[in-house]
Amino acid sequence: MNPNKALWEKGDFTQIAQTMRESGEQLVAQLGITNELMVLDLGCGDGTTAIPEARLGATVLGVDIASNLVKAGASRAQAEGLTNCSFQEGDATDLHALQDQHFDLVVSVFGAMFAPRPFDVAREMVRVTRRGGRIVMGNWIPGDPTLVAQILTISAAYTPPPPEGFISPMLWGVESHVIDRFEKAGIVPENISFRKDTFTFKAAYPPSQLVNTFKTYYGPTMNAFEAADKSGKALDLQHELEDLFTRQNQSPDPNVTSIPATFLRVTVLR
C-alpha cells in the first residue's frame, strides 16, 4: 500500500480538523472566492477549506489520498446541500484524472506538502491551473516555535530515522525550496509570493485532551507513540506534548484550548 495513503487513513483526521474549522473559514474568506470560480482543493481532508469555498459559491473539487477523508468530506457537503462541492480520491503527485488548465484556483492547506516527490506535486498543481489562475498553499515551517512544527520535532525524537531518500514535507515551509520547485514547473520567481499566517486550533476542552486527540487520531503522532511505546518512552512523549500544548494555550480558561500555529502562505500566479 502507498505509505502516504496508509499514514493519512490511519486514525481519523476529522477529529483534528474539527479544531481547525474557524481558521479554515477565515483563510478562505481572504481568497477572493466568487461564484464563477472552478476550485481544486488538494489534500482537502474532510473539507476544512473546500466546504467554505463552496459556501461562497465556487464549484469545488476536493481531492485527497485518504478514502475515509474523501467519504467524510462528501458527507459534510451533502449534509449542507452543497451540490457545487464534490470529493474524490487522488494523489497530489499524479493528478492524471484532472485536465490541463482546468481550475481558476488550486488550494492546498497542509495537504499537498505531505505528499512525496515535491517536484511532481508542484508540476501537477501548475499543470491543472489555467493561465491567469492562482495556486495558494499553506505549509508548516520547519523549526518554527509554534505548535505543529514542535509536535513534529518532538515526535521525530521518538521515531526511527526516515528511509534513505526521504524528503521532509517541512521543506515546503522554506521559501527557497518553494521557489525552486515551482520554477522547475515553469513559474518565474516574480510570480511567487509569501507571507506568514496563523491557524488556531480551538477546542472546548483542555490542552491535555487535545494531546490525546492527536495521540488517538493523527497518523504521525500515532506512529510516534507506537515507536515510543516499544522503547518504553511513551510516557515521556506524553509529558513533552502535554507541556507543549499547555504552554502554548492562549485561552484564559484552562479547560478550553486556543493554540495558534504559524504557517507559510504561498501564492503562485500562473
Rank of each mutant, 00 (worst) to 15 (best):
E25D: 13
E25F: 06
E25L: 06
L27P: 06
L27G: 10
L27Q: 15
V28I: 15
V28L: 12
A29K: 15
A29F: 09
Q30G: 13
Q30C: 11
Q30V: 09
Q30E: 15
L31F: 15
L31H: 12
L31Y: 14
G32S: 13
G32H: 12
G32C: 13
G32A: 13
G32F: 13
I33R: 11
T34M: 09
T34G: 11
T34I: 14
N35T: 14
N35W: 06
N35K: 15
N35S: 14
N35I: 06
E36R: 14
M38E: 15
M38T: 14
M38S: 15
V39G: 11
V39C: 12
L40S: 10
L40H: 09
D41T: 12
D41M: 11
L42I: 10
G43K: 10
G43F: 08
C44F: 02
C44N: 05
D46S: 15
G47A: 09
G47W: 04
G47P: 03
T48C: 05
T48W: 01
T48L: 09
T49L: 04
T49M: 08
T49F: 02
A50P: 03
A50G: 06
I51A: 04
P52Y: 05
E53G: 02
E53K: 02
A54I: 05
A54N: 08
A54L: 04
R55H: 11
R55Q: 14
L56Q: 15
G57E: 11
G57W: 07
A58S: 13
T59I: 06
T59D: 13
V60F: 04
V60K: 06
V60D: 06
V60S: 07
V60M: 06
L61Y: 03
L61G: 02
L61R: 08
G62A: 11
G62V: 07
V63T: 10
D64Q: 05
D64Y: 04
I65Q: 05
I65Y: 04
I65K: 06
I65R: 08
I65M: 04
A66I: 06
A66G: 06
A66N: 04
A66V: 04
A66T: 05
S67D: 13
S67T: 12
N68M: 03
N68L: 05
L69Q: 15
L69V: 07
V70Y: 04
V70F: 06
K71M: 12
A72C: 10
G73S: 12
G73A: 12
A74Y: 05
S75N: 13
S75L: 14
R76H: 13
R76A: 13
R76G: 04
A77V: 11
Q78V: 02
Q78F: 04
Q78S: 14
A79P: 01
A79H: 08
E80W: 02
E80Q: 14
E80G: 02
E80Y: 03
E80H: 01
L82Y: 00
T83M: 01
T83A: 10
T83E: 09
N84M: 01
C85V: 01
C85W: 01
S86F: 00
F87A: 00
F87N: 00
Q88H: 00
Q88Y: 00
Q88W: 00
Q88G: 00
E89P: 00
E89A: 10
G90C: 02
G90Q: 03
D91G: 02
D91P: 00
D91E: 09
D91M: 02
T93N: 02
D94W: 00
D94P: 00
L95W: 03
L95N: 03
